[in-house]
Amino acid sequence: METALLEVKNLAVHFQTAGEPGGAGIAGGVSAGVIKAVDGVSFQLLPGETFGLVGESGCGKSVTALSLLKLLPTPPAILAGGEVIYRPEKKRPGKDLWQLPHGDLLKLRGKEISLIFQEPMTSLNPVMKIGRQIGEALRIHSAEKTPAAKEIRREVLAMLTRVGIHHPERAYDAYPHELSGGMRQRAMIAMALICRPKLVIADEPTTALDVTIQAQILELLKELQASYHLSLLLITHNLGIIAETAHRVAVMYMGRIVELASVKELFHNPLHPYTLGLFSSIPRLDKEEALAAIPGMVPDPLRLPAGCYFAPRCPKAMEVCHREYPMSREVAPGHTVACWLQEK
């Protein structure tokens, strides 16, 4: 197997919540406790690969992404355990991003590993012109002395053109509110790529956009990924986007990966009942089928069931499922499932 660019081992991120004790409502109101938002997540990201992380809201996919670069405020977040091994050079041993001194981590952020967020309106600085925002990374991360302003401007304009902005000069001097949603997301991508990173983490990059604009942005991401040989960690709730963009995918439920496989394998041979449930609950354009919804709803993260977290909603739950959480098991090369049904 190829050496992974990023290796995440047993990642655990918890949140300390302060609620009113005993204030539990029907759907689990406010009560205090520790929420295990990410609970033992492991995966590898290969060079030049798109790895999808899919799940419903609250499953921990965004927390996973943000915690990799230690971007979560602590407290309330608690980086409870795990390793994030980043190996930019194949021959050399990697470094654990969580153990790096803060200064070294700052040098990596935005330079070798960058982020694309969901809502470009809230993640771009509203009082700073687009060009200056994109050039900021260049000013901060240049190796020796800061490049000349002209140089930076030239490079930013080239990158704006590269991401498909037709009037880069105009966009350079625009404030974020003057651009449309699609253009803002393009600017965001330009910002993420300006330092030629090795790894880009995209957290729901197209969720806030209309479908025709989403198609444009996905095409752009795919094309840029191929030409820059990027590794892309793509976080989304949309299985359609995964099918069209990712190479491998992990399905998350309640802070844990329940199934991990290549996209082809997962879509053709989904094994975990939750994955199956997800597939049968999406309305599709290419098929005529009644929707089979997953019954019930996600459990209260403060009152997780004793066994498998999906057992209360699972149509195939057995006695053991309610007692013990299943181990992850490799059922085919590269295809792991955490489900008692797979135990032989």
């Binding site: 449309s180 699609g182 253009m183 025709t212 198609a215 949309n238 299985l239 996209v263 082809k264």
Partner: peptide
């Protein structure tokens, strides 16, 4: 509009129609 909707099937190779502009 129809072509822009991602289809949850990795095998589904459609003619890629991407509308330009906004």
């Amino acid at each position: 509009l129809l072509a822009a909707v991602p289809v949850p099937d990795p095998e589904c190779k459609r003619e890629r129609l991407v509308l330009s502009g906004e």
